[in-house]
Simulated assay, not measured.
Amino acid sequence: MPIRNIAVGRPQEATHPEALKAALAEFISTLIFVFAGEGSGMAFNKLTDNGSTTPAGLVAASLAHAFGLFVAVSVSANISGGHVNPAVTFGAFVGGNITLLRGILYWIAQLLGSTVACLLLKFSTGGLTTSAFSLSSGVSVWNAFIFEIVMTFGLVYTVYATAVDPKKGSLGIIAPIAIGFIVGANILAGGAFDGASMNPAVSFGPALVSWSWHNHWVYWAGPLIGAAIAGLVYELVFISHTHEQLPPPDY
């Protein structure tokens, strides 16, 4: 049971050099990801006169986020695990794969990374708005809430299958690609409805810098619930810590 593995962690962990290095890696990787993803939307708006909501803008956002996340996960995977997302961190905590204190450290670093990325974008673009996530016309908060749960479930399930599962074997090599691809695909599926955040940090930075908090709770509650479900399902159903692990060629 994953509940047996859930731990608060020792107070010393908050100041341990390795934990601080991991938090710094999360800060940098989240900054890289948000700068690329949010920046691509701002650039597309500038080039096409607010064309980011068009089909071409949706495809551009999908590619930018997929590529950006692939790099962000890759550069921090060996240091912090490459979470780049408070929902992923929460899913790992629910599954007993990270302590609460380290998770909080990651959250602080991720939110700071997103905020700094948006501030840098606003400064370097001469004051252009970093658009906060919002619902499309005709989409209710509950529609968006379900969208965020389902999309984040798919993301965190992919993280567990390719990066967390002890039986992943050589599949772990393509984990950053798989994680980037599922985010890109989900943006194509849900971007036209609620922006397809799947990541509270990605929503928090633009909302803070533009000071626009309308329906912001959706982009926290949905991803955290989806991540928790994915972590529990994968730990309870697919990860067994008692059976003998098969050699890599067998799976």
Rank of each mutant, 00 (worst) to 15 (best):
A175P: 01
I187S: 04
L128A: 15
F90S: 01
S52E: 02
Q110W: 07
L135D: 00
A228Q: 06
H216V: 03
L224C: 12
L63T: 01
L105T: 01
A72S: 14
F133S: 14
M151V: 15
V75H: 02
L63D: 00
I239V: 14
H16Q: 14
G231Q: 02
G184M: 09
T162E: 09
G95H: 04
A7F: 08
G172P: 00
V209A: 10
P86S: 06
G103K: 04
A56C: 02
G51T: 06
G113F: 01
V202T: 11
A87W: 04
I149M: 09
A117R: 07
P248A: 08
N85T: 09
V59R: 04
R10E: 15
A228S: 15
A221R: 00
K122D: 01
T115I: 10
N97I: 00
S170H: 13
L121F: 00
I177H: 02
T89L: 08
T99F: 06
F153C: 08
A36G: 13
V233D: 08
N143P: 04
G68P: 00
A144T: 07
I108M: 11
K122V: 00
T99R: 07
N143A: 11
S210T: 06
V88E: 03
A192W: 07
G91T: 05
K46T: 05
H214W: 08
T15D: 01
V156C: 11
S140V: 10
S137K: 12
N97L: 05
L232P: 02
S136P: 00
P11C: 02
A56F: 12
M198E: 03
T125P: 08
I239G: 05
F35K: 00
G95W: 04
E235F: 11
S124Y: 06
A117M: 09
A36Q: 03
Q245N: 11
F153G: 10
L208H: 04
T15L: 13
L171D: 05
E38R: 09
K46P: 05
A19V: 10
G190I: 09
G127T: 13
T54G: 07
G37H: 11
A61N: 15
L120T: 11
R102G: 01
G231P: 04
I179H: 01
V59D: 03
V209S: 13
G103F: 10
V71A: 14
G172T: 01
A230M: 08
G126N: 01
T158W: 03
V233K: 02
G184Y: 11
N85V: 10
W142Q: 10
V139H: 06
A61D: 08
I174P: 06
E148W: 05
V139T: 14
P2E: 04
W213H: 10
I174L: 15
Q110H: 13
E13L: 12
A163F: 06
H241R: 14
L111W: 04
W220S: 02
L121D: 09
A56D: 10
G103M: 05
Y234R: 09
P166I: 05
N45I: 05
G169P: 03
K168V: 13
V94A: 12
G39N: 07
